[in-house]
């Protein structure tokens, strides 16, 4: 039985964030951390909130802090991260938390926007 500790925070009702513990039966399979989150949301607590899309490590949606290390949940296998049957999932550090594992990416994206605009300007040619 996997002990999973998930960072929770709902701005509407919580004055402060807290860690919530779940027990997840992975039936001995070496699944990805995203699969564990999906199991918790589907079977135990539908309010657990996180971003995800491609589930194959190309879109970047599910960047999380997993057992202290930042990575994409969909390509982090339990065998890569779990120690002593314990899995701790927290949002990416350094950014404001919107809810649970969802962070406000605006600051990060603002920087990309500035760079993108510059890059696109430098590398596009006027149409022929």
């Amino acid at each position: 039985m996997l002990q999973v500790s998930v960072y929770r925070y709902n701005p509407e009702v919580d004055s402060a964030p807290y860690m919530q513990d779940f027990q997840v039966d992975t039936q001995g399979k070496d699944v990805m951390v995203l699969d564990v989150l999906e199991m918790i949301k589907a079977e135990q607590d539908a309010t657990v909130t996180y971003r995800r899309s491609c589930r194959e490590g190309v879109c970047g949606s599910d960047g999380l802090n997993i057992n202290g290390k930042n990575g994409l949940a969909c390509i982090t296998a339990l065998s890569d991260t779990v120690k002593n049957d314990k899995l701790v999932i927290r949002p990416l550090p350094g950014l404001p938390v919107i809810r649970d594992l969802v962070v406000d990416m605006s600051l990060f994206l603002c920087a990309i926007r500035k760079d993108s605009a510059v890059f696109a300007k430098q590398h596009t040619r006027p149409s022929d």
Partner: peptide
């Protein structure tokens, strides 16, 4: 819907 909240409600 298993989640009745307003903020980032993915459920």
């Amino acid at each position: 819907c298993g989640d009745k909240s307003s903020a980032f409600n993915t459920a």
